[in-house]
Design a protein around this nucleic acid. Structure first.
Lengths: 253, 253
DNA sequence: TTGTTTTCAATTGTTCAACACTTGACAGAT
DNA sequence: ATCTGTCAAGTGTTGAACAATTGAAAACAA
């Protein structure tokens, strides 16, 4: 995974990458408040460098800065989840439609990715499975052949992953989604793009409502444990996006 | 334009805003190399604060950092322009299609904005005219009701404006575009959304090819004056995106 | 007890001065 | 003319300091 050119990245960027990874892994859970000095010392860098790194993360939406009050790992609201899935639907469906003359190499990557996905599920390796799931969707975005859209999509997925670290893996079976992905791939190579977008839309709607349920339970669950400054009427019991979701029924099988 | 809550913004953010404005105004032209110490002293802030501000701008794509080599105001390539217009077409057309049940307040803003646009053109105030042009499109994006998409659009338009500061205002008539915008507005309130997107697509294609022409001339023109580190075979004479543009003919009148 | 004011420690925002590291250019040697 | 070593300029990073703000405890008043 190393590039042949020399590493040549600034320390601040490396620190940012380190933090980003830890946030997306769930090691730093949403709501965790971060203190500059301990963080800087833990990585052996100065406070200024750490501040630059934190600035990067905050512009990516992974941490929230409250001036003079500190920084905390961002926490997704239901509105955030809804927005993010709106973005996903829009970009991924457009990407499918842009696959009329798909890059053969991309199709190959999609196929091998799918195989690895299935293998990970068979091995009960949920972490790898989720990664392959997200990678599949990221590859789809490549059909757009637009670096800006790809970066934006990636940034958005990053925010989403912060919400996904909350889902209890024991109550959620990532392998469940393999058949949908296989179907998407088959429709894609069969050039049935319209139908492919329909399946994709339902897949995303399904995914959204499931995440919303988990998130809603979570917000209602530890409202006392959460000492953050957002004790508003946020933990609505009613699943907010349920009305917008076209189909909550399981898609596959 | 001041919010009622107290100013409470960090100095670094204010410095970033200052630089951003100057870049988008064209006061700091693309390719200009920026030096931290003079910049910091000119605004009366420390070098660290200036570095934070520059970090912000670089993540917005307005300046490019070359490690140990300095920073420079970013310069759009033809590929960048093509990508940006791809983004615009995608988002703006989807926004139009999302205007089936439009917010009345938004429609009103669109109308008054259009009137101010026309007034600015009659007053030969090209700067205001261009601003009203861009504002019209930004309002359209609001139909999507999605902060993330709106932010991304705004960031992308920011990059585009950096390319637009190169166009020679004497050879370009911003008033020319008023009729198209009026037409878009009329189709929008008439709920002829499909037709509206068609006009919009042609408008954007037209705008793209015109900007590409200007940019291409510019890149070819001062290849000697440009001491930047990108002396590649970048100044292709052939307008790269001409093949993709559906219609170069004037849209209005 | 309850509500208000004061104090204070903790943390962030900002500055400053120094040093390490890279780079581009220039001068001298071949 | 080409190569090589030197060097000034500029960026990357550090550590320490001070200013500004906040949250909450402590002191006070009703």
């Amino acid at each position: 995974m190393e590039r042949s050119p020399i590493h040549r990245v600034s320390v601040a960027d490396q620190v940012a990458s380190n933090l980003r990874e830890r946030v997306l892994n769930g090691e730093l859970r949403p709501g965790t408040s971060l203190h500059e000095i301990p963080l800087a010392e833990s990585l052996g860098v100065s406070r200024n460098t750490m501040r630059e790194a934190v600035r990067i993360l905050s512009l990516e939406g992974l941490v929230k800065r409250n001036i003079h009050r500190g920084i905390a790992v961002a926490q997704l609201s239901l509105k955030d989840v809804h927005e993010i899935y709106h973005v996903r639907r829009l970009l991924e469906m457009q990407a499918i439609l842009a696959a009329k003359t798909p890059d053969p190499d991309l199709l190959r990557q999609l196929r091998t990715g799918l195989e690895q996905y299935e293998k990970a599920v068979r091995a009960r390796d949920w972490v790898a499975a989720v990664n392959h799931d997200l990678r599949f969707h990221r590859l789809i975005i490549r059909f757009l052949k637009n670096d800006r859209l790809e970066d934006f999509y990636q940034k958005t997925i990053g925010e989403l992953r912060m919400g996904m670290v909350l889902v209890d893996r024991r109550h959620d079976d990532p392998g469940m989604l393999v058949p949908v992905h296989r179907r998407l791939y088959q429709l894609l190579i069969a050039k049935k793009l319209r139908e492919c977008t329909e399946i994709l839309a339902r897949h995303l709607d399904d995914s959204e409502s499931r995440l919303c349920r988990v998130l809603d339970d979570h917000l209602a669950g530890n409202s006392s444990a959460n000492h953050g400054p957002e004790a508003k009427a946020r933990s609505v019991r009613k699943v907010r996006s349920a009305g917008k979701v076209r189909s909550v029924a399981r898609v596959h099988d």
